[in-house]
Amino acid sequence: MVVGLTGGIGSGKTTVANIFKQFKTVEIYCADDEAKKLMNTSVEIKSKLIDLFGEESYIDNQLNRSFIASIVFKDKTKLNALNAIVHPVVKKHFKDYLNKRSGKDYILYENAILFESKSNLKCDIIISVFAPKDIRIERTMLRDGSVKKEVENRINNQWLEGKKLLQSNYVINNFNNKDLDFQVFTIHNILTKKRV
């Protein structure tokens, strides 16, 4: 079973995924982390990104993330072009990953743009992590050292929260971390049919 985990930037997906890590019968795949690795290791992705954004896309053979971000979060066409290069490679990587994993209760597939990339179609269950926009902006600014406008640009390139929540089987509210563990344990117990 594939369980999608998503949520807007700064919602706390990674915090939630880290709670799921304590379950030994769950395997976790983070699409964002794998995409970052693949953008540095895949010859196919590298050559296409250099064609699209120029030689400045890589410094010392490593993706120039700030350079790419400064372009794509202001230009939806360029963002779509970037996604068209990276997503098919990540999807294939995930498919290979699934084929090598068996005997687990489920695979937790963490993906910030689960719906936007249509990866939700590969999931049996979807969990969305929700936090109000002002909290998400504040968290992201603290985490990335970015300014409010940059965070808002990134939020504007993701689906609206309400649209995600309506298409999710479960919603984890992450306003404060007080009952985060309880929410994760409850969902895990339902998915594995254990009593809470």
Score class of each variant (00 low, 15 high):
32 D>G: 06
48 K>H: 07
51 D>G: 06
38 L>S: 05
76 K>E: 14
62 Q>G: 02
112 A>F: 04
184 V>W: 05
59 I>G: 07
144 D>W: 02
24 K>W: 04
36 K>L: 05
152 E>N: 05
45 I>N: 08
12 G>H: 03
35 A>P: 07
176 N>T: 15
162 G>M: 04
127 I>N: 10
92 K>V: 09
75 D>R: 00
103 G>M: 03
38 L>R: 14
153 N>T: 15
16 V>F: 01
94 F>N: 03
36 K>I: 03
129 V>S: 11
101 R>H: 13
156 N>F: 05
162 G>N: 14
57 S>C: 09
185 F>V: 15
97 Y>L: 04
57 S>P: 02
62 Q>E: 13
18 N>M: 01
139 R>N: 01
14 T>H: 08
180 L>V: 11
121 L>W: 07
133 K>F: 01
180 L>D: 12
71 I>T: 11
13 K>P: 01
178 K>L: 13
176 N>I: 11
175 F>I: 15
1 M>L: 11
117 S>T: 12
108 L>G: 01
105 D>N: 09
129 V>D: 12
16 V>K: 02
6 T>N: 04
34 E>F: 10
100 K>R: 12
99 N>M: 14
28 I>D: 03
135 I>Y: 10
41 T>N: 10
82 L>H: 08
3 V>M: 05
114 L>T: 14
25 T>W: 00
2 V>F: 03
155 I>E: 05
162 G>C: 10
18 N>K: 04
186 T>W: 14
65 R>E: 09
89 V>C: 05
78 K>F: 05
144 D>K: 00
5 L>S: 07
94 F>P: 15
172 I>F: 09
41 T>D: 06
104 K>R: 08
183 Q>W: 05
190 I>H: 10
